[in-house]
Every structure is written in structure tokens, then in C-alpha cells.
């Protein structure tokens, strides 16, 4: 059993959190007020450490804004931690949203190709898998129509099937299981279980504690940037359900 993801003393501090549009003017104003923006520091993650073992499915739970997404982005090396270190062994694919690179004007088929390439598949792989993806999404009849004509359920199915055509060692799933109708939701759960059976490592984030319980062996609870608990999935979820955490 080897450690494939090692998160060590990771902290992340965001500045100017409240300012979305930064401009030369506001930079100048801040410069004059000198240090006015020091107050706007937000500590998104505070000294978080944990390890994930190869083949494990780790659930990550916590309230909105607790720092889960920041943690996932740091593990996927989309953003850098302010301090601390991350080690990842093997290929890692983050699925942080459904429909990476999708555009409504393109057809379903074109979206599969572009999205698949962005997720890291080669040209050859994507053309090999495309029929399988279309079949899994149950969209054979409309695959050459622009995606803007799809219902939201059809869109989710297309996005999900495309995302799961990848074959990494470690996969990060951020709230993307509860898509489509009930039948498709169970089909997609099967897909995740298939990944699990192939002994892939999964980091699984969800607000749906029931599916966390069903999927994961262990879990961690993140609370205002801190690692509040790590342990087997039942005990973490029990703690999650205590009134002060709910």
C-alpha cells in the first residue's frame, strides 16, 4: 500500500477576496491608502495534512466555503499553496465541473472531442472511444445537433460520459455524480464503482452524505479551512451530522 497523494501542512491565503475587478485605478487607490487591503486576507486552508493510499476512495465533506474546492484545486496544481507541499504519484485528472470546455454552439460530437482532448486524452484515444461515449450518454439520435438544443439532463449525460472516458490513476470528483434522472444517476454510480474496482484512487467531494457513505472507505471533514477529522467514513459523517456542524 503506497501513498499516492501526500498533502503536507498546506495553507492557502487569498488576498483582495472581495474585489473581483482589479484595475489600475483601484491599485492606485490602494497604494495611497497603503495597507488598506491587508484586512482582506482570507485564510482558505490552514495547515492541512493528510495522505491518500493507492486504491482508496476518500470522501471530502464540509460546508460550502469550508475550503474543499481550494484543496482540490491545489491537489490538481491549478493553484499553488501559500505554504506546505503536495506530492502526487501517477496521473491525476480533476473533474471539477461537468462539461469542461463545452460550448453550446458546437455539436455533441465536437464537444466530446474538444473536451476529451482538454481532459488529456490523445486524438487517437478520443476517436476510439467516441462511440462508446455516445452510447453511454444515450444520445445517439441528437449527437450531431448543437448542444444548446439539449435539455439540461441530456447536457449532463454528455458531459458525464465524456469525463469518464479518461483513464487516470487518480481521479478527483467534485459534486458531479447527481446528474440526469434516477436511472442515469445509478448508471453513473456504477461507473465510479467500476473505477474503484480497477483499483483507482478517488477523491470524492459531495454534499450528498448518503452517496459519500456508499462510495467511500474513509473521509475527511474540512471546517473553515482546517482538517476537523479524518477517519472511517461513518464516524466522520456522524460528526458532520452533529448540530454544530450541520
Amino acid at each position: 500500500m503506497s501513498v499516492v497523494v501526500e498533502v503536507k501542512n498546506v495553507s492557502k491565503v487569498f488576498r483582495r477576496h472581495t474585489k473581483k475587478h482589479f484595475s489600475i485605478k483601484s491599485a492606485f487607490v490602494d497604494f495611497l491608502k497603503h495597507g488598506a487591503n491587508k484586512k482582506e486576507i482570507v485564510r482558505a486552508l490552514d495547515n492541512v495534512s493528510f495522505e491518500v493510499i493507492s486504491g482508496q476512495t476518500l470522501g471530502i465533506v464540509g460546508k460550502n466555503g469550508a475550503g474543499k474546492s481550494t484543496l482540490l484545486k491545489i491537489i490538481s496544481s491549478i493553484i499553488k499553496p501559500t505554504s506546505g507541499s503536495i506530492k502526487v504519484k501517477g496521473s491525476l485528472a480533476p473533474l471539477l465541473e461537468l462539461g469542461t470546455g463545452f460550448h453550446p454552439e458546437l455539436t455533441g460530437r465536437e464537444n466530446i472531442i474538444i473536451s476529451g482532448l482538454i481532459l488529456g486524452l490523445s486524438k487517437k484515444e478520443i476517436y476510439k472511444k467516441i462511440d462508446e461515449i455516445i452510447e453511454f450518454a444515450e444520445l445517439k439520435d441528437v449527437i450531431d445537433e448543437p448542444v444548446r438544443t439539449y435539455s439540461s439532463g441530456m447536457y449532463s449525460r454528455l458531459a458525464f460520459s465524456t469525463a469518464f472516458s479518461i483513464d487516470p490513476d487518480i481521479i478527483i470528483l467534485d459534486e458531479i455524480l447527481s446528474v440526469g434522472d434516477i436511472a442515469f444517476a445509478s448508471k453513473s454510480k456504477e461507473k465510479v464503482k467500476e473505477f474503484k474496482n480497477k483499483n483507482k484512487t478517488i477523491l470524492f467531494v459531495s454534499h450528498d452524505l448518503k452517496s459519500v457513505k456508499e462510495m467511500c472507505d474513509e473521509a475527511i471533514l474540512i471546517e473553515s479551512g482546517r482538517l476537523a477529522k479524518k477517519g472511517d467514513v461513518d464516524s466522520v459523517i456522524d460528526m458532520c451530522l452533529l448540530p454544530k456542524h450541520a
Binding site: 484545486k73 496544481s77 491549478i78 480533476p94 469542461t100 482538454i118 481532459l119
Partner: peptide
């Protein structure tokens, strides 16, 4: 934006 903040491209 969504590619830069949510994918490793």
C-alpha cells in the same frame, strides 16, 4: 475562465 480555473490545460 472555466478552463483556466477548473482544468489542468
Amino acid at each position: 475562465e472555466s478552463l483556466v480555473t477548473r482544468s489542468t490545460l
